[in-house]
Design a protein around this nucleic acid. Structure first.
Length: 171
DNA sequence: ATTTACAATATGA
DNA sequence: TCATATTGTAAAT
């Protein structure tokens, strides 16, 4: 995932070890700001002091990510810092969190749920801008007719996450 | 049945 | 103005 050039706020990066690899979680003062998929080029976490509150959030994030990887719904999420998104994007992300595990919607259905039935394309843009995959389940959104659509972290992840929830993609 | 092509649409950089 | 993780329709394989 690309590093945002927008670093108007110092973020604390922490490695998040799972059976699927080491994710990178980034925290701001408000909560979890972004979650990156495992990569071979994981930068070492900054050796700055980690406030106790953030360690507590990281504990919740770790548990939630592992639960999501297992195809189940996390019982508790850390606070999410979505202030980097626009108002429309935040509305979309909130809507995504309402999708129960194992269920998929289309971009058009998300748009309709927001009262903008013709904003499917814009919803796709908001999904692509989602900084917190897995916890904001952008992988449960397909294109119309069951077509796969896209995924920031790569289609392999989208297939894997959906398969864990019992929704295999064709192919 | 599957692949292209294209217009219309909302949002963001 | 241009790009996009869309959608629906149409035409050509």
């Amino acid at each position: 995932m690309k590093i945002k050039s927008n670093n108007h706020q110092p973020l604390i990066r922490l490695p998040l070890a799972t059976a699927a690899g080491a994710f990178i979680a980034e925290y701001s003062d408000h909560g979890l700001a972004s979650l990156d998929f495992p990569s071979d080029a994981n930068p070492p976490p900054g050796s700055m002091a980690v406030p106790p509150e953030i360690r507590r959030w990281h504990s919740l994030t770790t548990r939630a990510v592992k639960t999501a990887l297992a195809g189940k719904s996390p019982a508790e999420l850390p606070p999410l810092d979505l202030t980097r998104g626009t108002a429309f994007q935040q509305t979309v992300w909130r809507e995504l969190q309402k999708i129960p595990g194992g269920q998929t919607l289309s971009y058009g259905q998300i748009a309709a749920a927001l009262g903008r039935p013709s904003a499917a394309r814009a919803v796709g843009g908001a999904c692509g801008a989602n900084p917190v995959p897995l916890l904001v389940p952008c992988h449960r959104v397909l294109a119309a007719g069951g077509r796969p659509g896209g995924f920031s972290g790569g289609m392999a992840w989208k297939r894997r996450l959906l398969a864990a929830e019992g929704v295999p993609l064709p192919g």
